[in-house]
Design a protein around this nucleic acid. Structure first.
Lengths: 123, 123, 123, 123
DNA sequence: GTGGTCTAGACCACA
DNA sequence: GTGGTCTAGACCACT
């Protein structure tokens, strides 16, 4: 996880978990790492991780069972994809293309990097 | 300009000014809108706009003449391009391509939107 | 029984048993399902069910016979009715009526649903 | 506000704010009490109130302007009504009627209390 | 002054 | 052990 980000830590951890689900590492019904575990792993206060899980619960991405732990919700994958796609097409993509024009960057560069990344994943 | 952004207002205004310079709307030596004007236009506190100009001055993008106003610096364009390009290649581009893979978005979509935007600008 | 409730599981089971007694399904002296049976039926830990019976015993709703099982106490019905009625008039009813006013819901709707439910029970 | 409730304090404060909006005390665009003010008023830690406002923001009931304060959102009223109504018809109402049958309470009692409350509000 | 994040530590209920 | 809430206090960025 990128720690040198400017975004709030609890949102970075949220994205980290969502990315795992998107990649299929954690599928529906699977139990997630406990709050205390993640707190140790990321070197943050348990409250910060708790806040991450709270948000994920509100999103419907995760369900909590009291005294047991957190589990990946059934609709988690669709949920995250929908949310991310919306944000991507509404905001990230337009401003990205705007930047490309302003900075004189061509689509070919994007395609190139995209393929490089694809091959990397295959390896 | 999107005012309902999560980014600090004074940085949004900074980007807005830089974008104008990148587009060639304001070239070197040109006098920029006064603090008061921009404050009214954006509906924000004059202090906020003052902070924007303060930053732009520190960046070397703008020069201030006491009692007169702010002017686009000679190196402004190169300045902004260099800064933006670095940020783009170091941060925006990698995470963007990462998102493309996670969300199953193809480079063709980017190219298409890029060209659409280009034609729109020509018009 | 709704298991996805926010209330503690052992209290949900407690209510479930009390409801049966109120409906007359289980009258005084009747032996109740064993801890193990209920644990299997609800898919919870036996400790959780044990805790339910512990509470019911403290309430005087249930009596335990060591090595045999749990039985509906003599005063069970009166016990539950009194407790529930008090809670109902003190808390549930006032806040319910408050909600009705805030949400613009009329007593007719309640009456209607009440009668529908009554007919359903008769069937 | 009922303090002797079993619900989390930050949710009680949330309901308190929503009730004010439903009653028309605070309409769209109005600035709400600051986090620190409410913390003093309710005798709780500012973090608790902050959590309340965080939830209200996520609900779209409230918007925050950094360095300025919280404001009632445009859709706040509709938002709250829709949420409350859904909860009412899906959950509160059915279980309430269920209780009425179990405890032998008639709709007339509800109607009576409802009208009493109405007259009280008129006065 | 305002909101926003984070830490540290405590206590509780639940399984 | 688990999650959930709350306090106390700090620091930051923004207006």
């Amino acid at each position: 996880m990128k720690i040198n980000d400017t975004a709030p830590v609890f949102l970075q951890i949220k994205s980290w978990i969502e990315d795992h689900i998107l990649r299929g590492d954690w599928s529906a019904g699977v139990q997630l790492p406990s709050v205390r575990e993640l707190a140790v792993e990321f070197g943050v206060n348990p409250n910060t991780v708790a806040r991450t899980y709270e948000r994920l619960t509100l999103d419907g991405t995760v369900t909590s069972v009291r005294g047991v732990g957190y589990f990946v919700a059934e609709q988690a994958y669709d949920n995250i994809i929908a949310r991310r796609r919306k944000e991507f097409y509404d905001s990230a993509l337009p401003s990205f293309v705007e930047q490309m024009h302003l900075l004189g960057i061509t689509p070919e560069e994007i395609t190139k990097l995209y393929n490089a990344k694809k091959n990397e994943n295959i390896k």
